[in-house]
Nucleic acid binder design. Structure first.
Lengths: 159, 159
DNA sequence: GCTTAGTTACTCGGATAAAAAGTGTCCGAGTCAGAAAGG
DNA sequence: CCTTTCTGACTCGGACACTTTTTATCCGAGTAACTAAGC
């Protein structure tokens, strides 16, 4: 799985803590974790395309959350970065074997594909069941200073 | 996820159906699905290293199952091919952020990492809960001719 | 003072390059089966 | 006929290319704010 998922999740949380109506540039979000600016920008673009963030060009531009955190699931972010296709993609090798038919969709009928899909659905179900709001709530419960610290760090950022 | 997982799973099932005490070569297993022989051999080697198959060199050599199918889970095969590391690997970017400490293991304490791990555990749990014996039983229930067809195909294989 | 046009600096966005992982191939080391020779 | 040696072919196993994906970078198009000029 791409490293960008981790960056995206953390950046979304940061965006929620500094929310002031102002947009946050990719450069500032990258500076927070010393990440390569241009590459994080690429990930944020993916989030924007997926409708999780909105982007604004020009001075005072940047990214901001497109909707409240409780409307953004972990699944949404993972799909935005990784794409929608499944990890185990059945290549239908049964079709090449004896008795294989070109007219059968083995992605549906192959028992192995079904078993792998069941596991992947369990994974997706867990991801879809947790919103970023849940994550933020847990973080704030364990580290109450995080919102203020984050906000003030971005406020005091130079250059 | 690597394509080799699909090849490995199907090949293990085939091995169980033709089990006669004889070993099966990578070339024959590859011919069954018209797969590239040398590359399938590579995957089978991984299964052998993981203790799922045993390999024999020389004439009459090849691969055979190292233990009964009901002792082989989908998780075992996936781990053998893909490796044991998690799909979402926390790079601990919190360490590079303000307030980050070099002495904290953020793979454990980071709430995001925990949430992603929970999802991955659900996936692993599903995979570990299904043995190849379960798969075979289901296949034989839906396609009763499979064992005989497979066995006779390998028996009649030329060259 | 207010409006308006022009300029400038800033930001995203996609095009481009480098690195890594995945995919595929080839040849050699070891080994076992079978043939051949000897008893 | 049985045993033993030798040969030879067969198989895995790892080393070596090629392709695709991931990671990272760089500039240009567009935009909004600021400046300054005109009313």
């Amino acid at each position: 799985m791409s490293e960008g998922v981790e960056w995206a999740l953390h950046s979304c949380l940061n965006l929620s803590w500094i929310e002031t109506g102002e947009a946050m540039t990719a450069a500032k979000l990258a500076a927070f974790y010393s990440l390569p600016t241009a590459y994080l920008n690429k990930q944020l673009q993916s989030l924007a395309k997926a409708g999780i963030l909105t982007s604004t060009s020009g001075p005072r531009g940047g990214f901001r959350l497109a909707r409240p955190l409780d409307k953004i699931t972990l699944m949404d972010v993972v799909t935005a970065i990784e794409g929608a296709e499944e990890a185990f993609r059945c290549e239908q090798i049964l079709r090449e074997g004896p008795g294989g038919s070109p007219h059968v969709d083995y992605r549906e009928s192959c028992v192995i594909a079904q078993a792998m899909r069941r596991a992947e659905l369990a994974w997706r179900h867990e991801l879809a069941g947790q919103t970023l709001a849940d994550i933020r709530k847990t973080v704030e419960g364990r580290f109450p200073g995080t919102p203020d610290n984050t906000r003030s760090w971005f406020a005091n950022l130079r250059t």
